[in-house]
Write a protein that binds this DNA or RNA. Structure first.
Lengths: 209, 209
DNA sequence: TTTAAAACATACCGTTCAGTCTGTTTCGGA
DNA sequence: TCCGAAACAGACTGAACGGTATGTTTTAAA
């Protein structure tokens, strides 16, 4: 593959990502994307056979970057600490920092956009979004389970429930951020969640120490 | 106002609500709404001067019903119990029941749809959505404050933080529900949140008893 | 019963949309 | 240097869209 070809494709994906996050998928026209990406219609339809195909490729491209970033954060945390609880805390704080300090302050979550326009998208795109959210959850679940096994919580909690909770808090926080024009809500909710974990596991951790 | 006139208007709003929740606002055409509502174009533009105006009226109509329902649940809880903690728990469980057993299983939150298409909507509509979310939060905040004042929590928590947390959990839960096709996630997260409250306030409540 | 406004119904209009078609340029081998 | 394929560029098309224009029916008061 030539450099230039890949560059155009990437420009289109980046422009489309920004516009879709701003106006939704149905609210973004191909012409809008062309203008923002600085490419022609011929270029667009050379790389994507339809708008629906772009939707599919866009979320796959985005999810690839996302999951890679997640795995990197998880790996860093695991390299730095032995204790799963410490790993979890570092992972959560790193993610908070990522949300707060990202060059482009977060305008929401692409999976949420896709989810709320799911009926207009292909079946397999919806399946992919669900799958990606589950992959995301899975990273948490594994870590929560290690923590629960090591430090019995004061209340019975499942790793799955906790992972659904943090994902819900983040997704919901991003909505409130957008609605209120406040870029700190999601990070604050994540902090709050860490307090909750502290309440759940502090007793066992103190006992172990 | 005549009965028939109001009936058409209501039909349009109901049809629009359903379609917007399914496909988003940009993804719903006026013709789609006419077909679903069984009215003509003349009727539509008699009641709404544009699609943007419909967006505004729709969210106002929806929010009116919503806030009314919320206030009713709050009033019922306050009539049944004297203790603010008991009131809060009843309010939360009633809302869980409402989410779970609603005739039309919840397909998400209209404010989330509007929030994710905010750039394409009028300034004042966005302001109204933010205001409505804040009204919703305010109901929680008042009650949380009463509970905090009466039963000092084991960790310092603010009523505002707790209200942002439950709203985030609900909004995020509704996204996961849609993505996974599981109608129980939001209610389960609300249950989980009650466990958290129990952890925060159990000590003070035991001491008071 | 008349009347004027409200409440429609529907054909139509200009624009925008996704997608196509017909070329031209770029580029990496042979 | 030549060639074929990849990578464009941009005019064009038919359908769908939001909105309008014009006429008809319904309604409620005088």
């Amino acid at each position: 593959m030539s450099k230039k070809g890949e560059q155009s494709r990437e420009n289109i994906l980046m422009a489309a990502k920004q516009l879709v996050m701003q106006n939704g998928f149905a609210g973004t026209s191909i012409d809008d994307i062309l203008k923002a990406a600085g490419v022609s219609k011929g270029a667009f339809f050379h790389h994507f056979r339809s708008k629906a195909h772009l939707a599919s490729e866009l979320v796959r491209w985005h999810a690839g970057n996302d999951i890679r970033m997640f795995r990197t954060l998880a790996a860093e945390a695991e390299a730095m600490y032995d204790d799963p609880y410490d790993q979890l805390m570092k992972f959560l704080t790193d993610f908070e920092a990522y949300i707060s300090n990202s060059a482009e302050p977060s305008r929401g979550c692409m999976y949420a956009v896709y989810t709320y326009e799911s009926e207009a998208l292909d079946e397999d795109v919806n399946a992919f979004v669900a799958e990606t959210l589950q992959q995301w959850s899975a990273i948490y679940i594994r870590k929560f389970q290690e923590v629960i096994d090591r430090y019995p919580p004061v209340r019975p909690v499942s790793a799955r429930q906790l992972s659904e909770m943090i994902v819900s808090l983040i997704e919901g926080g991003l909505i409130l951020q957008r609605a209120y024009g406040n870029t700190q809500i999601t990070a604050r909710q994540s902090e709050h969640f860490r307090d909750y974990l502290d309440l759940l596991f502090a007793q066992s951790r103190d006992a172990a120490a």
